[in-house]
Amino acid sequence: MNTKKRVVMDADKIERSIMRISYEILEDHKGVTDLIFIGIRSGGILLAKRLSERISRIEGKAIPTGILDINLYRDDVMMAGGKRKLGETHIPCCLDNKKVILVDDVIFTGRTIRAAMDALMDFGRPKIIRLAVLIDRGHRELPIRPDYVGENLPSSLWEEVNVTLTEAKAHEEVVVIEN
């Protein structure tokens, strides 16, 4: 099959997006009180960590960061076609009255976020939930909209959007693959 790869964000651009989103979050929430970052497994984990570290550095205060696996809350969990293996969820504290920043790398149909919100509610009653993503590629199937977006990337359904973030910050990029 003919596949074409197109780089839409390089490391610098990703870094600048993360920086801008960090300041937006700080401004909207007037500081970091009660803030908690939850990354959706697996694409959101590093991004959540990156955002929380960036804001911690600006404010000089550590911000709790968690990991959420949404597989058990999916609406297609028992249907064929899924390829994700169940992973661990780690929420560092009760979410009662917390300001939760839910983080994922790409938002597409919105179904993952629906599942994530259901999952979050089982850990308490957050004061608010906000959604931060690096890429919004459109094609929503549910009435869900991200609050912080790195890049709006209109895409075709047959395209694949891949975000590569690494712990070592090497070869980071966002690519669109045309199938």
Binding site: L72, Y73, V77, T89, C94, D118, D122, F123, G124
Partner: peptide, 12 residues
């Protein structure tokens, strides 16, 4: 981890 949660139930 599910058995450690305050709400020990998932809808799966």
């Amino acid at each position: 981890e599910i058995s450690q949660r305050p709400i020990k139930k998932v809808p799966t």
